[in-house]
Design a protein around this nucleic acid. Sequence first.
DNA 1: AGCACGCCGACT
DNA 2: GTCGGCGTGCTC
Length: 802
Amino acid sequence: MTVAKVIVDVPAKQTDRPFDYLIPEHLEEMIQPGMRVIVPFGPRKVQGFVERLESESSFSSLRKISEPMDLVPVLNKELLDLAEWLSIHTLCYKISAFQAMLPPALKAKYQRKIKLLAAKEVVSEPFHFLFHERSEILWEDALQTVSLSSIQKEVKNGNLEVIYEVQSRANKKKVKHIYSRLDEHELKTALESLNKQANKQRTVIEYFLKHNQSIEQRLLLSELNTSSAVIKGLIEKGILAEQEVEMYRDPYKEREFEKTFPLKLTDEQTKVIQPIHASIHNKEHEVFLLYGVTGSGKTEVYLQSIDKVLKKGEEAIVLVPEIALTPQMVNRFKGRFGDKVAVLHSGLSVGEKYDEWRKIQRKEVQVVVGARSAIFAPFENLGIIIIDEEHEMTYKQEENPKYHAKDVSIKRGMTHNCPIILGSATPSLESFARAQKGVYTLLTLQKRMNNNPLPPVEIVDMREELREGNRSMFSRLLLEKLADRLVKKEQTVLFLNKRGHSSFVMCRDCGYVMKCPHCDISLTYHQYNNLMKCHYCGYEEPTAKICPECSSEHIRYFGTGTQKVEEELTKIMPEARVIRMDVDTTSRKGAHEKLLNQFQDGKADILLGTQMIAKGLDFPRITLVGVLSADTMLHLPDFRSSEKTFQLLTQVSGRAGRHELEGEVIFQTYTPEHYSIELSSQQDYDLFYSREMMIRKSHSYPPYYYITLITVSHEQLTKAVSVTEQITKVVRQKLLPNTVVLGPVASPISRIKNRYRYQCLIKYKQEPNLKTVLKSILDHYQGDISSNGLQISIDVNPFLLM
DNA sequence: AGCACGCCGACT
DNA sequence: GTCGGCGTGCTC
């Protein structure tokens, strides 16, 4: 007897364990660990993953696997183990871990239907219409016309049956090909027997006489300028036949990749690459922190390291932050390694992602360049993992499983005995501290490749501007430089990390601020549709002309978004051509690339944008970078806000003067004396690091302490508070005395979607029992979670404390 | 997560 | 006496 241990697709505490199933005889040979199967589960059918096979079960009345969903396992042994590890370390369900590792196309789709068993006349009257000319109907559709109880009644009587279907989302793209079923001689005969009027059919047969091979229908039709009706006729006559051919969607098909070759390395690069190559050669796991200023040629180091890996017949994963996955970035890898590269990012459709993933699974590519989830690429001979811009937040997933790609990469690096490169111009304090301690190997690139100096940064004190009567969002210095660039036909990048129009709307008479009715957050004004929008729950309402509180007409828009800047800019400098890039203008597929191309082609003078323009932009004519308000992030309730500000400002400054023309940078700020603004203007990472480390130490924050955040949410404030109180108490009791437990406190965003949020923050150096304690807390509140609408979220090593 | 089972209040 | 509310517990 073979028993399959199956993890079912039911994300709940009680089902977070393997269930045993018998394997039907005819599948005995084919079912393997890592395959998806459809299994009966209670009254329904669900998708499940075979975790392992065993020869017996302690459970007596086993049910059978209904059918397999894969011919080949979608998870190999390593990934199955990795899922186990993930679920332990991030406290997530196994099934969530499996799903995080696979492309979304492999997630099951469920359909519930009701099926007519008896004759139509037997069921009650309302059903007659439903089952008119069909015997099955979707559950949701049925409920539109008949009541739940009437369905139940008919089911009880045996007239109806509820059936559950599991479908795969994965659809391989198929193309219709047409071929001839006859040989040359037969074709000629067919041609003669053709009706005189059948001119189109004649040309088709003549075509197949000339080229007797299978051809894609689409091509055939366009070549012969005919329609599918003609082909259909010939198929019916038995002359032609069609066949579905599976193919890949290739999002990069239409594009030419200019082949690039290894560049001659600078002395610094050579020095840096040696230990990496040694580690690849010796198959040693080692984590390198590649600390190199912007423009110092980190990418070339990556490329030549990958090249070495490929020559050994091994594979490489390159992670890039989502917003940096620009065509420019992809080009660099495709240009060097051609079709050995698969690309995985959120811009692809579900089908495209699936195809790229299959290329990896079928070993048709050796390199994958992708965002966070690409860390789970099913390679079996990994030779290197590279994480570019390792300090970026996007590597931490905020939903379950709340994993950090860096941790996963190190885990995989250990199993494959391969090196990891973490690259950054502004390493996270965690990584730099580990490098200082010798846990990671520090490699440094201090010089820019072209030996250009970093662009000089000028800080403008906006309070001063205000005092001298300039109330606009542009300082006089910035306007002056902008005008200068316009004359010189050079380009400017203006950076602002806020989309929309104004950040909030306030009544000047009574101070009323428009807030979301479901969340504790102010609404953001969006000019293009004249709506107030909540960025957390999506709530929208029309803009108010008078204050809802005191009926005053003195409603004012505060803060500045990209839209408003664009408006102002066109007012002040009507001759300047501006391209705005933010979530609103780049949401359409390909819009991002299109806007960048326009800018590159010199069709605009100013590129105005949010976060997304801080990275990867490398255009020779950019000589001015302006940061409109350098301190917007500084005052967020987050212990990393200084670090983030430093990183962002350094990053943005790096956009200027990367080529022959020298660049300049302007930071506008209300707090010019703040060390992260001052030190980023001097590009002094080392000093920033030591300043910030002192602060982290005195407040017991990472990297000195680990942190874990527990967030409790409930519709009732009192429930949220009391549960958090209890949790905090238990945590204090059960953890070590030198562990700091903060809370209960309201979350920085105290309410989202009508749920009150309270939290408890744990800071610890070493806490061997942490996972056990946290698990027992989740167990304890199991009842409230499943029936009472209580939610408890646990984030081990969170990036956002919100 | 779903769904059945089961135990109490408001109706024919 | 029955219909239907939702608390409890199970799914191999």
